[in-house]
């Protein structure tokens, strides 16, 4: 049985398109791995208990809270962080651009969660209702805005994405 226990764990994570082969201690959260080991500090540390959503990343296409994700359990996951949202030419993604245009944030500490969740929402549902926006953002706390500007920004992002699609057609 003892030979089944590992002190460190090998993971092969593709983070924002780049492969990282990492030997990590078992106790490390994905948040600590990103911020401390890989210097990717766009993902924020907030509550550490899974309430606030500031540490949100996307794991295999689904949003997750990195502070309550044990990195050793991820194996060969594909991860997108807020740093990976910008387009290849360095331009902001339509979701980022809409939040900027609409002044969606005030302090923007919650930006990783709001932007990652909005991105996933609009990929699956190009024209969400107010209720669907609230459900999608329910795992994120904002202490500045009262959420009205965030909802406005999500709607603007939906419109911007639609305009971009129509322009491409």
């Amino acid at each position: 049985m003892e030979d089944m226990l590992e002190d460190t764990v090998l993971v092969n994570l593709r983070i924002n398109g780049k492969l990282h082969e990492l030997e990590i201690p078992a106790h490390k959260s994905l948040l600590d791995l990103l911020r401390d080991d890989l210097n990717m500090t766009g993902t924020h540390m907030g509550c550490m208990t899974g309430h606030c959503g500031a540490c949100t990343v996307s794991i295999d296409g689904r949003v997750a809270k990195s502070c309550i994700t044990l990195a050793a359990t991820l194996g060969r996951a594909k991860i997108t962080t807020i740093e990976g949202l910008t387009q290849d030419d360095g331009e902001l993604s339509p979701v980022q651009q809409a939040f900027w245009d609409e002044a969606g944030f005030q302090c923007a500490f919650c930006a990783p969660g709001m932007l990652m969740c909005t991105t996933e929402l609009l990929d699956a549902n190009p024209d969400p209702s107010d209720a669907e926006i609230e459900t999608a953002l329910a795992g994120n706390l904002c202490r500045c805005t009262g959420y009205q500007s965030l909802r406005r920004a999500v709607k603007a992002a939906a419109k911007l994405k639609q305009n971009t699609r129509e322009a491409a057609e």
């Binding site: 309430h51 959503g53 689904r62 949003v63 809270k65």
Partner: peptide
């Protein structure tokens, strides 16, 4: 509770 992030994991 906890939002989509918690529902996903």
């Amino acid at each position: 509770g906890g939002g989509m992030q918690v529902h996903n994991r």
